[in-house]
Each structure stands twice: as C-alpha cells, then as structure tokens.
C-alpha cells in the first residue's frame, strides 16, 4: 500500500519491461489496465483544471500518449505512468495558457492517487458493476434511456426502435450515440462511491 510513488522515474519504469505491443494487444491492455484508472484520472484533472478547459480533452491526450508509449514498450507499473503523463500534460497546458502557476499542479502524493494498491479499481468495478450500470442507465434522459434499453437489452435494431417509439431513425441514432457516450462517462469516469446518487 505504501510503495514509493515512481512518477519521477518514468524512464526507469519503462525500462523494467520488455517489448512493445501490437494494436490488438494495446487495445486489450488499455481496456484492462488504463480505463479502470479513469475515475481517479478525471478527479485529478478536474482538481487541477478548475473550470478552465475540458477535462475530457486532456483525458484523451493522456490516453493517446499512454497508448503510443505502450506500442513501443509496456509501461509497468501502469498507474504512476498514466498520472505522470497527466501531470506533464497539465503543466504543458498551463504553461501554454498561462492560467495558473505551474506550482499549482498538485503533487500526485497529495491526491493519494499513485499509492493505492494495484488493481483496486478493477476490484471495485467488478463488485459494483450492476449497481454502477443501473445508475448509469438512470442518469440518461428518459428518451435516451428508452433507446439504450431497447437496443442493448432487447437487442432491437434502430429501425424497429424508431417504429416502436414513433420517432425517426436518425433521432434513434442520435440518442443511441449520446447514450453510448454517457454510459462510458459514468462507467469509467465517475467516482467509485455511488452512494450519494441513490
């Protein structure tokens, strides 16, 4: 639990591991190792960005860098590597925008993000999966929820859903796209502690 955070030793962490990965491997690794960190990552980004800018944009940049690195060499351990990249990108951005002094970027230790036991997120995820999914569904607008339920649970096509709900097929597409994006945000991005939303 109290292993030394390794975010200052990015290059060392990289050197510990062997070869890089192909696209399919990067994908599997990204889904398995990186996405579960999203809640913590988003908290970190929000915390440091305040209201300025779009944390989702930065999140995307972090993921891009992480995956590009993984193609060359698998980062290990993953967590400090991801947060080091996030921190560097935050600093770059602030330097560029001259919003806040660079010192304002909080240290990773202060946020306690780098020292949790590996895999903690995944364990929480598995345990709370159904509740999380239910909540994710509840967050959608009623129409969007309806469309997602019909598509995902009932397995109906866009055409059939459109006919059933009496709306156009393009409206169904739009709702479904929104629903997919919202589900990803809630499933990966929102805090693990879901009690407040019940």
């Amino acid at each position: 639990m109290t292993e030394t955070p390794e975010f200052h030793r990015e290059t060392e962490a990289l050197r510990e591991t062997g070869a890089g990965m192909n696209t399919a491997e990067v994908k599997a690794w990204f889904v398995r190792e990186v996405l579960p960190l999203e809640t913590a990552l988003m908290q970190y980004l929000h915390h440091n960005m305040g209201k300025s800018g779009d944390a989702a944009d930065l999140r995307q940049d972090v993921y891009v860098r992480v995956c590009e690195a993984a193609r060359r060499q698998v980062p290990n351990p993953v967590r400090p590597f991801v947060f080091t990249i996030a921190r560097n990108l935050l600093i770059d951005r602030m330097r560029h925008e001259q919003v806040v002094p660079i010192e304002a970027v909080s240290d990773l230790e202060a946020l306690n993000v780098a020292i949790e036991a590996p895999g903690a997120e995944r364990a929480v995820m598995a345990r709370d999966e159904l509740r999380r999914l239910q909540i994710a569904l509840d967050r959608l607008s009623p129409r969007c929820r309806e469309v997602v339920v019909l598509a995902r649970i009932e397995g109906l096509s866009g055409r059939v859903i459109a006919a059933r709900l009496g709306i156009s097929e393009s409206a169904v597409s739009q709702q479904l796209d929104n629903g997919m994006r919202a589900l990803a945000d809630v499933l990966y991005g929102e805090p693990q502690d879901l009690r407040k939303s019940q």
Partner: peptide, 29 residues
C-alpha cells in the same frame, strides 16, 4: 483508437444490464 476502444468497452460492459431488467416494469412498450 482510444475513443472507440473506450466506448466499445463501456458498451460491452453494459451487456450485463440485462440482468437488472425487472420484467414487470419494462421501460418499453
């Protein structure tokens, strides 16, 4: 890639939603 992988992974997870479905009060019809 990352945008697509992320949405796809979430969508695949959502397949489990089915287990939640109370047959008596379906959203649908």
């Amino acid at each position: 890639c990352v945008a697509f992988w992320r949405l796809e992974a979430a969508w695949e997870r959502s397949a489990r939603l089915e287990a939640l479905r109370p047959l008596s009060q379906r959203v649908v019809v």
